[in-house]
Design a protein around this nucleic acid. Structure first.
Lengths: 244, 244
DNA sequence: GACAAAATTTGACGTTCCGTCATATTATTG
DNA sequence: CAATAATATGACGGAACGTCAAATTTTGTC
């Protein structure tokens, strides 16, 4: 009983030790510098032990990705619980997503790494399933808000069949934007504004296209951004300010 | 003179030989199966010779990416020359992009691989610059159409400052959508429709948000999709039908 | 055409890193 | 305390990258 649970706790704790060591290596020197030997050396266990926890380097990296998605779920849940219009709550998700990615650019990069087929090939089935479950959880939150908007009339009932399309639209827009932002394409040099600004504007325009009330043309969007981010993401904002 | 140009031609031809061998390997067995030794064996030159053309495996893969972007530029240029409203021409870009990615899913995956920092680190400066130039060319085409829309009044002049934001919005939406489509996330299982359909709908809604005339609410969008794709991308459509 | 110099090609080799597995060590149980 | 089970270890095999001295081919000159 006690023995068993102590054992399990030890295993879990070591797993976390490995994960945080890996994350540090990843953040400080990038994917190529993260090697299983280095991880083993850092946590002072042998490589074999690391492989008792993770079936491959890619499996380890995927676990880090799962962690990030869990963090994002927190962000999404906070947004979900915001007391405002459905549109504000939905926008809050996007804002949270943007801020999280600004704060942890490496995390998003890492999640994207796992999407790469060459990497994905080597991740264990089990871990892939875990990631999928987490992603499903995230889309469910987004979907709920869209559905509530239809139910309360903020979104026209004629869009009932578009719930998934709307979720997908915002998802793809944010996902694409943040990936472009990260991928060393010199957007600023190409004449583009900071991505968070463009994204906020575009998301609003997109939702206006669906006539999700209240339209962004009737309100001060800068103020709304400010309001939501200070209400829900004060910590993130502070950290971001410190970073600059 | 002749000698010099013959030499250069030989080099260029061999480079193409290497690239197409690499592409085949990549398409048939994925990134991990693509090795420099295998490429060398396939083209019947030694590895050293391959390295005279490409500074690393990643550099070779990046060259393949550049090829894909060149193909996309063709697509974009066709769209640019379409004789229709500015909105139709801009939409044509998106349609072309979607179709190209449907037809060559591996290509898009490959371009994305190069965006990954772990890969990018190892690409030569020269090749990165080449890719950047090509990407710049693409955004310029998109930007031109938006500008023309403003000039002719299809888009309100108040959006003059948003030209880049509009280009970025469509780009990110399409880019994100197609990446999500490729990344083994079982979208259909999660209840989502085929990505090309959602993307077409969302792009229209987005442009409606900017009130780019004529609004999608006043026309039959299915017909428009049909019209544009058969006018500009008949070849691609045929190939897609054959593939099914 | 012969020979020297320059350019190019070659593949064996050094290195890095992954993942395994026989052996050593520690823990559990009777 | 001894036998057995569970776990940890790191030396090792293998795959792939990228290099470079030597071999080969091409170019240039007389």
């Amino acid at each position: 009983m006690t023995t068993e649970s102590r054992k399990q706790r030890e295993i879990r704790e070591r797993e976390e030790l490995i994960l945080s060591a890996a994350q540090t290596l990843l953040h400080e020197h990038g994917y190529n510098h993260l090697t299983m030997d280095r991880v083993a050396e850092t946590v002072e266990y042998s490589k074999g032990t690391i492989y008792n926890h993770f079936t491959s380097k890619e499996d380890l990296v995927c676990s880090l990705g799962c962690r990030c998605i869990s963090n994002l779920i927190d962000v999404f849940e906070r947004a979900y619980q915001y007391s405002g219009t459905t549109r504000e709550r939905y926008s809050a998700i996007g804002i949270g997503y943007s801020l999280y990615n600004q704060l942890h650019p490496m995390d998003a990069q890492n999640v994207q790494t796992v999407k790469n087929n060459a990497v994905r090939e080597k991740v264990s089935e089990y871990k892939l399933a875990e990631m999928e479950t987490l992603e499903q959880k995230i889309t469910t939150i987004a979907r709920s808000i869209v559905q509530e908007a239809i139910d309360c009339g903020d979104l026209d009932k004629s869009h009932q069949d578009d719930v998934n399309t709307i979720v997908f639209g915002c998802w793809s827009m944010h996902y694409g934007a943040l990936l472009l932002d990260q991928s060393d394409i010199p957007l600023q040099q190409l004449g583009f504004s900071p991505v968070v600004n463009m994204l906020w504007k575009n998301a609003n325009i997109y939702l206006d296209g669906y006539q999700w009330q209240p339209s962004s043309t009737t309100i001060d969007t800068d103020k709304l951004f400010e309001k939501i981010s200070s209400a829900l993401f004060a910590d993130e904002i502070n950290l971001l300010k410190q970073a600059v």
